[in-house]
């Protein structure tokens, strides 16, 4: 097991380095120069020659390109990720202030997706071709098609119209005021949770239906075990693997989706910060936040892989 973990961790390192290279290159092939991207074409023309030079230097863009990359790597290692161009916040401030909200949304949504998706999927498989099964399948297909940011906007609109709800203005952390914090995050967590639950429900249902035909299930039934126990103790153990795998695959859906859903709810998380940075063309913030999102994605995938190996010993030795 330790060997497996070590091997997996070593594989993640080139992925992370590659991530920095790709982000760096993408940020450098911006059409025209950075100034046009940041200030627009007319804005750039209004800048004086000294202003341009000063801004370029402040972004570190006056150095040769490989030095710029090395500088960025140094920044990453020392956790000094530079500063927002338009605001006084450093990128680290943004991550520390807003990161927890996004993290909470992500964690709650995964928990919710399992709490909703798994029981519905199991029941649908057990009551195959009954109205319950049809309803479960109908809703899971429907929620696969509903864009999460639209669902979010609809919920916000309903709340605004009925309860005169207002979008949260500032960051409220869980440890400061749990209740107020919960009010901020429940909406995005619910929307993302339902979105993932639709996938999980489908997968749980089909995985369970497949396992039910196995010989050892027949054996369990033949020895007189109650159907509930056959499902929960025997079938579910094997059926759960593809569901966990799927939950890992859904991380991409979750991380990307959280950006759009935070925007829909006006929640001051990392995703909304990223969108704002795109609008303001806040070069340094975009570069580093995209890196953070990529890092989180790579690292959570690593954790998911390790957890498979932990659950299913066959993987460790292959």
């Amino acid at each position: 097991m330790q060997k497996y973990i070590l091997r997996r961790v070593l594989l993640a390192i080139p992925a992370i380095i590659g991530l920095t290279i790709i982000i760096f290159l993408v940020m450098r092939i911006l059409p025209g120069d950075v100034l046009t991207v940041m200030f627009g074409e007319e804005g750039t023309l209004q800048l004086s020659e000294e202003d341009r030079a000063r801004i370029i230097a402040s972004l570190g863009l006056d150095k040769p390109i490989y030095l710029q990359y090395v500088d960025w790597l140094k920044d990453i290692v020392t956790l000094k990720l530079g500063q927002s161009f338009w605001r006084s916040d450093t990128v680290m401030d943004l991550i520390i202030n807003r990161g927890p909200i996004t993290l909470e949304i992500a964690v709650f949504s995964v928990i919710l997706s399992w709490l909703i998706g798994l029981p519905v999927g199991i029941l649908a498989a057990m009551k195959r071709n009954t109205p319950f099964d049809y309803a479960g399948r109908f809703f899971s297909i429907l929620f696969l098609a509903i864009p999460n940011f639209w669902l979010g906007t609809l919920i916000v609109l309903t709340l605004v119209l009925t309860l005169e709800w207002k979008a949260p203005l500032g960051v409220i952390n869980l440890w400061e005021d749990p209740w107020a914090n919960l009010q901020i995050i429940w909406g995005p967590a619910l929307v993302l949770g339902i979105g993932q639950a639709a996938y999980i429900c489908r997968m749980a249902r089909s995985a369970l239906l497949e396992t039910i035909h196995e010989d050892y299930i027949r054996t369990a039934r033949a020895k007189g075990l109650a159907e509930r126990l056959v499902i929960l103790r025997h079938a579910l153990r094997n059926a759960i693997m593809p569901v966990i795998t799927l939950s890992g695959v859904l991380l991409g859906f979750l991380i990307g989706g959280s950006v759009a859903v935070e925007q829909a709810f006006g929640v001051p998380g990392l995703g909304r910060t990223l969108v704002a940075a795109f609008f303001e063309r806040d070069y340094v913030v975009i570069q580093n936040l995209v890196l953070i999102y990529g890092l989180v994605f790579v690292l959570t995938n690593l954790l998911v892989d390790i957890s498979y190996a932990w659950i299913d010993p066959r993987i460790r030795y292959s």
Partner: peptide, 24 residues
């Protein structure tokens, strides 16, 4: 395979966002 794994280490939406930013 290595190169494509790199592309896959970005969440889809975020990859699309920075690509559009880069290309205009």
């Amino acid at each position: 395979q290595r190169f494509l794994e790199l592309l896959m280490s970005f969440p889809t939406l975020i990859l699309a966002m920075i690509l559009v930013l880069a290309m205009g």
